[in-house]
């Protein structure tokens, strides 16, 4: 006499639509050096662009947080950069393999942002195809470290692409001169996010941190937000730039130099 009901009961989180599901992999597609992992969607809600899912597969003890890259019908797509044990295990999955998916988690990008401009760097473009689709044609600026990596830029068909040594903040700075009200919605490496934050404190930045759980349990993903160490999975992963990069009052003469009252 087995009581399977409890085991199948969906786990939902407060104020969110997160559910735990055991799903099948549909395949891994090479996108330059990255891998686009296609997973059947089951009953999962794809959530808002910028939200993430915890993905777990054998032999990993802990799941890995991955933002949703694509939300095709009946499917979830995750862009993986296979650089460590967890990401390599995910990029190796074959069609039919089992994967445990928990999400959507965290807070996504604000889709009502004023005059949005999408900004991405390297594997940080992961949440941006879904974001671009949701924003229907918002301008996008992407930076990559090589031509090989830039192949992934094709995931955002209308994007302007720059390759190292050109930084993505260069076209962004020009964009902000012509459209000062524009709101950057960005994801990329930490130095890129900091640079975007310096250009626009009203930008929304999708940050990353090591996470064991993704739902506020482990306190592992602490990031300095509002000057305090806070859980990125609870506060973010998309955070207003001004909350992440507090102006350095000791070293910057800038406010008075540009005529802003002290």
């Amino acid at each position: 006499m087995h009581r399977h009901d409890d085991r199948r009961r969906p786990t939902r989180l407060r104020g969110m639509n997160a559910q735990l599901a055991h799903l099948r992999v549909r395949g891994n597609e090479a996108i330059g050096p990255y891998s686009l992992l296609h997973v059947e969607r089951g009953q999962l809600d794809p959530g808002v662009p910028g939200q993430f899912f915890m993905l777990r597969t054998e032999p990993l003890l802990l799941p890995r947080p991955m933002s949703l890259c694509m939300a095709r019908a009946g499917e979830l797509g995750f862009l993986i950069d296979p650089t460590g044990k967890g990401t390599e295990a995910l990029a190796r999955l074959d069609p039919g393999d089992r994967i445990t998916v928990f999400g959507p988690l965290g807070h996504g990008f604000p889709l009502d942002a004023t005059d949005p401009v999408i900004v991405g760097g390297g594997i940080g473009i992961a949440p941006l195809p879904y974001l671009s689709e949701s924003l229907r044609g918002a301008p996008a600026l992407l930076g990559f470290r090589s031509d090989a990596h830039a192949v992934a830029g094709a995931l955002l068909p209308n994007a302007e692409i720059v390759i190292d040594p050109v930084r993505v903040t260069e076209p962004l700075a020009e964009h902000l001169v012509s459209r000062p009200e524009a709101t950057p919605l960005a994801c990329g490496p930490e130095p890129m996010l900091a640079a975007v934050g310096r250009l626009a404190s009203h930008a929304w930045l999708a940050h990353e941190a090591p996470m064991a759980c993704g739902y506020g349990a482990c306190f592992g993903c602490a990031v300095r937000i509002d000057g305090e160490l806070k859980r990125l999975c609870v506060e973010g992963p998309t955070v207003l730039a001004g909350r992440l990069y507090v102006p350095d009052h000791d070293s910057s003469p800038l406010p008075s130099a540009v005529g802003v009252p002290a």
Binding site: D6, R7, L13, L20, M54, L60, L61, T100, C213, A217
Partner: peptide, 11 residues
């Protein structure tokens, strides 16, 4: 630790 990877672990 099991709770991190499996929030349904209690049931």
């Amino acid at each position: 630790t099991v709770l991190f990877g499996d929030p349904a672990a209690p049931h």
